[in-house]
Design a protein around this nucleic acid. Structure first.
Length: 304
DNA sequence: AATGACAGCTGTTTCCGCTC
DNA sequence: GAGCGGAAACAGCTGTCATT
């Protein structure tokens, strides 16, 4: 190794001396110098390669010395640069990945049971669902009732607490003359119209699909309030049974005397179901035709 | 889910201090 | 920030049925 190093050193010295002596040496001369160097650096392929590269660089004599100096240092520099550019990047990338994956690595150490995994998946779904619900637009507030307006206008006395204030409001409301109550009712009616207009404006902005989505969420939460779609007229017509039920109800043919239940509407529905099941196909046919006619009309309206 | 009917039930609205 | 407590009024949901 030492012999090789000294040979390279000698070769470089000779090459440097020759370059300095003849700055504007032609390419052919440089080639002969390279041939000369071969005798010194026969065992140094890297230096030969550098010299061969120098042959090309000889076309720019002014930069020769500099280039020669670069030749020796440039290669290692390139290596350093390469290291800096590639290796550190890899390190950075690795660090980034490591940093990003650290929690994951930690998680991997914890062996989750299938139940835990399912719980986490469920929690993630719930989180996403909650975010989706939060993102839904909020409908405008409903208009206050007459009593609500009265409560709003009734000032609280001193340090009276909410409960006492509301009790007092209740008592005052009961004693309030009908003419006064009517005033609040009229105010409420006016605000209801304003609220209705605001709702229509909001509904037009968000669209019926969003309204239906909000209704689904509210239903799931057990919230009774259902938002009215902007275009309730474009409804799917009732089923064949519904048409039959309405027809029978209109004709007063739903006798509920033998039907059990507390709710008359429910009893009527039960009676209608009973009658419907007793109908033949021929008896059902007129209701079927009526349903198909309405359905076609609905589809035409929808596609228009 | 929507369609019809409708009695009965439930949620929402107002006020605001308090708790979680 | 949401919910509760209190009241009253009222809007709107529920329950039933069969079918698409």
């Amino acid at each position: 190794m030492l012999a090789l190093r000294s040979a390279v050193r000698l070769g470089l010295s000779a090459f440097r001396a020759a370059s300095l002596t003849v700055p504007a040496a032609p390419a052919s001369l440089l080639a002969s110098r390279v041939t000369m160097m071969r005798s010194f650096t026969n065992s140094a392929p890297a230096l030969l390669a550098a010299a061969a590269r120098k042959t090309g660089a000889a076309k720019k004599p002014a930069a020769k010395k500099k280039t020669t100096a670069t030749k020796k240092k440039a290669a290692p520099k390139r290596k350093v640069a390469a290291k800096r550019k590639v290796a550190p990047k890899r390190k950075t990338a690795t660090k980034r990945k490591t940093a990003a994956k650290k929690p994951a690595t930690r998680r991997r150490r914890v062996v989750l049971t299938p139940e835990q995994r399912l719980t986490r998946q469920r929690e993630a779904r719930q989180k996403a669902r909650r975010a989706e619900i939060r993102a839904l637009p909020k409908p405008p507030k409903r208009s206050p009732s007459a009593y609500a307006l009265f409560v709003k206008e009734t000032p609280r006395i001193g340090t009276e607490n909410v409960v006492d204030a509301m009790k007092r409001c209740s008592a005052l409301w009961k004693e309030l003359p009908l003419s006064e109550k009517t005033k609040y009712q009229e105010q409420s009616n006016a605000l209801r119209d304003v609220a209705a207009a605001e709702y229509r404006k909001w509904a037009a902005k968000v669209g019926d699909e969003t309204i239906q989505k909000i209704n689904r969420v509210n239903r799931a939460k057990g919230v009774a309030r259902r938002l009215v779609p902007l275009n309730p007229a474009a409804k799917i017509p009732g089923s064949v049974f519904i048409i039959f039920f309405k027809d029978q109800s209109d004709k007063g043919l739903l006798d509920t005397t033998n039907i059990t239940g507390n709710n008359e509407s429910v009893k009527k529905a039960k009676k209608a179901g009973e009658l419907w099941r007793g109908l033949s196909a021929a008896q059902k046919a007129p209701y079927q035709r009526l349903f198909e006619e309405r359905r076609e009309a609905y589809l035409k309206t929808k596609s228009a």
